[in-house]
């Protein structure tokens, strides 16, 4: 069944992304990892639009929406990182820890 190989790719990508978010110290890498997770979902959607139980084009339309939204999210993430970098002069995510209690 061809769909399972695509699903496996998606799952691997998702797990790699999740691992990256949880372990990477560089903030830019964390943002990249989130993109990986979102793209894993996109791969799933496109695979299902070809090999799903009811294959149709809706999945590809959904992907267009998610790509746009992911771009907006990445832009905001980078902008916030810029503001943070200006104030703290570091992009090491584990040093952003002034809030605690």
């Amino acid at each position: 069944m061809p769909v399972s190989s695509y699903l496996a790719l998606g799952a691997i990508l998702f797990c790699v992304g999740l691992y990256g978010v949880l372990t990477k110290r560089n903030a830019v890498m964390v943002l990249f990892s989130i993109e990986l997770m979102l793209n894993a979902a996109n791969i799933n959607l496109v695979a299902f639009s070809k090999y799903g139980l009811y294959a149709n084009q809706t999945g590809q339309v959904f992907t267009l929406f998610t790509i746009t939204v992911a771009a907006a999210e990445a832009a905001v993430g980078i902008a916030i990182l810029f503001a943070l970098y200006r104030n703290r002069s570091t992009a090491e995510a584990d040093r952003f820890q002034s809030l605690k209690g």
Partner: peptide
């Protein structure tokens, strides 16, 4: 962003099952 990715990943399976 991570939680959105989880929701989207879940939605992709809904789409896969339902078309």
């Amino acid at each position: 962003g991570v939680s959105s990715a989880f929701i989207l990943y879940g939605m992709s399976f809904v789409y896969g099952l339902a078309g």
